[in-house]
Write a protein that binds this DNA or RNA. Structure first.
Lengths: 186, 186
DNA sequence: TGTACATCAGTGAACGCGCGTTCACTGATGTAC
DNA sequence: TGTACATCAGTGAACGCGCGTTCACTGATGTAC
């Protein structure tokens, strides 16, 4: 096998990145090797460095992409809920709380262990922080859209509870933050 | 240097375990080597296996010990608060939310990344799950002690929010779960 | 209580394996004429 | 449009390093008599 066309190469890069995102989330960044990623993308390990300068680099990109994907998904879930006349924020929480295949592990949980120990100006750390900010923004938008504005503390608290429950493996009843917390209980 | 006395050896074992607990929490289990641990304990790496059968084994013990230490600390914080006529649960949340030196990183956050991918019958996973259960129990005890009983969902929700906020690096205002969530705001 | 010997905690070098990265090579692709 | 050549995406082996673990060795400790 010789040189690939530029279009083919671009597609390969995408496939490598997608494979990395899925594997990193499923098994954790530290437990996934470059060879694993390339194998999942249907290539051999040597070609990796034609596309990415290092594992660090692809980790950062995979992190950012995972957050983008999650944000997009959340928006879609919220839109679908509204179309069906349901509460958008509740729909996001329900979706978030649901069990998902390992490769769809929440990026906040998957990347937090590596990102959180980095200095705040580290690229991976930045990607992570930006991602969290983005997801909180999406959640807040959807939660306040069409219902009474919930104050910021209340929103980030609900968001944190959602993530914390996932991290700890709690089976948590989704709560719409736009409505009274207590009212929803039984 | 030849053989140590049994008392000395027992003390050394404790020191190794304490060093491991601190380092694992500060830098993450995967980024700490046996040599690092032994060096921190003031010994050379070869002696490690006189005390522990593997890194896995000391990780499990360090996890359990970290949770024990946290639970003990929480109880103390709560007792001190009550002695001063303050809300015990609020004191725990305030303590939890506070910045702490890296080696005192919350065990729920420090060990979650490795433990959560283990099968439920794995010893490390068991230690982690037991630890979380214990901390939630301590929190619940202290939160409901002396004030109206909060229902279980509400407690685990507040607990999850506390942990989630820490994971995400949110500066979160501590909330006493024994009191009205809304009432405490401003 | 003393003495001879077995035990075993601790040392530090070495082993073996995995993984990130490099490298010489291949041959299809893209380009210059 | 063809042709000759440079480029470079992909291959697969090899390198180098770190880390968990092993091992031969030392000599103080514990024990049997």
């Amino acid at each position: 096998m010789g040189r690939s066309s530029r279009a083919q190469a671009d597609e390969n890069r995408q496939r490598i990145l997608a494979a990395a995102s899925a594997l990193f989330r499923a098994r954790g960044v530290e437990d996934v090797g470059i060879a694993d990623v390339m194998k999942a993308a249907g290539m051999t390990q040597g070609g990796f460095y034609n596309h990415f300068s290092s594992k660090e680099a692809i980790t950062t990109e995979a992190c950012a992409q995972s957050f983008d994907g999650a944000a997009q998904k959340w928006r879609q879930i919220a839109a679908d809920a509204r179309d069906g006349g349901k509460d958008a924020a509740l729909a996001i929480e329900t979706y978030y709380a649901a069990d998902k295949p390992p490769e769809q592990t929440c990026p906040m949980i998957a990347f937090a262990p590596i990102a959180s120990r980095r200095p705040s100006d580290d690229p991976l750390r930045r990607a992570f922080d930006d991602g969290v900010k983005m997801l909180l923004a999406v959640y807040s938008e959807q939660a306040t859209d069409g219902s009474a504005k919930a104050d910021q503390d209340r929103l980030s608290d609900g968001f944190a509870a959602m993530v914390g429950a996932k991290l700890l493996g709690f089976a948590r009843a989704p709560i719409s933050i736009g409505h009274s917390r207590v009212a929803r209980r039984r």
